[in-house]
Structures are given as C-alpha cells and as structure tokens.
C-alpha cells in the first residue's frame, strides 16, 4: 500500500516530465521523482518499532541490533539528496540560459538548435 503510494508520487513526476511544455515544469517533475525514489529507499529499510541507528551509551550492541533500522539506505540517500541539489542547480541554470536566448520557457518554441 505504502509502496504503491510512493509509486503514484513517482508517476505524477513522470507525467509532468512527459506531458508539460514549460521547462520549469519539467524540472519540477524531475524533483518530485527524486523525492519519491529517496522516500522509497528509506521505506525499504524501516523495521517495525525500530529506533534510529544511533547507539546510546546505556544500550548494549546486541540489543541495539535487534531494534535498529537499516542505516545503509539512509547513508546512500543522504549522498543522493546532496547530489540532487547540484543537479537541480545545473538544470535551472540551463533553463535561465535558454530563457535568455529564446525569451520563453516553452520547449516547442525552441526550434533553432544551432548552439
């Protein structure tokens, strides 16, 4: 059920990328897809009644290993979020440059691909 809702969120982003004509709308669709994938990866590591993967001073490691959620997807999603920020900055820069060149955000107006 939760996985399916996550997939619906991804499909909304993909719908925006495929059908919209505005370049900023396409960037927004890619951002939504990125959020959905990050959320899905963290959902995969969640455990029933889990605790955050931070070891307290009092708890023993054995008891902690029975409770902790998966720290591996969390670490990889952490890097993926930061990379996403850089990629979004690059895409928005390309959008601004296209706007300055063509005077519009509409991709159907951008026919002259001479460079």
């Amino acid at each position: 059920m939760i996985y399916a809702l996550c997939l619906v969120l991804f499909m909304v982003g993909l719908y925006g990328v495929v059908t919209k004509k505005n370049t900023v709308k396409i960037v927004i669709g890619i951002i939504i897809m990125e959020y959905a994938v990050n959320l899905f990866l963290v959902l995969l590591g969640y455990r029933k009644d889990g605790v955050a993967p931070i070891i307290d001073e009092g708890t023993s490691v054995l008891k902690f290993s029975q409770l902790a959620v998966d720290p591996l997807p969390q670490a990889l999603v952490l890097t993926a979020i930061v990379i996403g920020l850089g990629v979004i900055a690059l895409m928005v820069a390309i959008c601004i440059r296209l706007y300055e060149r063509y005077g519009t955000f509409d991709i159907t107006e951008m026919r002259r691909l001479k460079g």
Binding site: N38, L39, G45, Y46, A52, I54, V69, V77, L78, I81
Partner: peptide, 15 residues
C-alpha cells in the same frame, strides 16, 4: 517529516 517518522533524523535535517 516522513523521514523523521521513519527514524532517519540525519536525512530529515539534510532534506
């Protein structure tokens, strides 16, 4: 907020 509920405070702050 979903990251916070999934016991992932580091990612929530970064997000």
């Amino acid at each position: 907020i979903a990251f916070l509920f999934l016991r992932a405070p580091d990612i929530a702050i970064t997000q």
